[in-house]
Amino acid sequence: KNAAQIVDEALNQGITLFVADNRLQYETSRDNIPEELLNEWKYYRQDLIDFLQQLD
């Protein structure tokens, strides 16, 4: 998997990933985040941060 796929997957589930103060953050109206997504975000944290910062 790559960062773009993970960001896309999150968006499809109503979750927006973004970077604030060099930390990976998310916004969602969901009550909870599936644990497998959280684990994936932790595992790919630096890739996601790098990818999202390139988009800014």
Rank of each mutant, 00 (worst) to 15 (best):
5 Q>V: 07
32 N>I: 13
8 D>G: 12
55 L>Q: 14
31 D>N: 12
32 N>A: 11
6 I>V: 07
48 L>D: 00
35 E>H: 07
38 L>Q: 06
22 N>E: 08
45 R>V: 14
11 L>H: 10
48 L>N: 00
13 Q>Y: 13
54 Q>L: 11
40 E>I: 08
56 D>P: 11
26 Y>I: 06
8 D>E: 15
8 D>H: 15
28 T>Q: 03
3 A>Y: 03
32 N>V: 13
53 Q>S: 14
7 V>E: 00
24 L>G: 00
45 R>I: 14
1 K>W: 04
48 L>I: 13
3 A>D: 01
17 L>Q: 01
43 Y>P: 03
5 Q>Y: 05
22 N>W: 05
28 T>V: 04
55 L>G: 11
27 E>C: 15
25 Q>G: 09
52 L>V: 03
40 E>H: 04
33 I>V: 13
7 V>L: 07
28 T>A: 06
18 F>I: 07
39 N>L: 13
8 D>K: 15
11 L>G: 05
22 N>A: 08
1 K>R: 07
42 K>W: 14
20 A>Y: 10
32 N>W: 14
52 L>Q: 00
35 E>C: 09
12 N>D: 10
29 S>R: 10
45 R>W: 15
23 R>W: 08
10 A>W: 04
11 L>S: 09
44 Y>A: 05
28 T>M: 03
2 N>M: 11
17 L>P: 00
6 I>E: 01
21 D>P: 00
19 V>W: 14
19 V>M: 05
22 N>F: 06
12 N>V: 13
34 P>T: 09
18 F>S: 08
14 G>L: 05
23 R>G: 11
55 L>I: 12
6 I>G: 00
44 Y>M: 06
37 L>Y: 06
9 E>I: 04
50 D>K: 12
54 Q>H: 12
49 I>M: 09
15 I>M: 02
37 L>A: 03
3 A>G: 04
15 I>C: 05
47 D>H: 08
31 D>K: 12
25 Q>W: 15
51 F>D: 00
30 R>F: 06
27 E>A: 14
5 Q>F: 05
43 Y>D: 10
45 R>Y: 15
37 L>E: 01
42 K>M: 13
15 I>S: 01
39 N>P: 02
7 V>F: 11
36 E>I: 09
36 E>N: 10
19 V>P: 03
16 T>M: 11
50 D>T: 10
23 R>I: 15
31 D>R: 09
19 V>D: 01
27 E>G: 06
4 A>M: 09
44 Y>N: 05
48 L>F: 01
41 W>M: 07
21 D>E: 09
13 Q>H: 13
35 E>I: 11
22 N>T: 05
54 Q>E: 11
38 L>D: 03
6 I>F: 02
1 K>V: 04
2 N>G: 10
4 A>I: 05
42 K>N: 15
31 D>F: 07
17 L>K: 00
10 A>I: 02
15 I>Y: 09
22 N>S: 09
49 I>W: 04
15 I>A: 02
50 D>F: 10
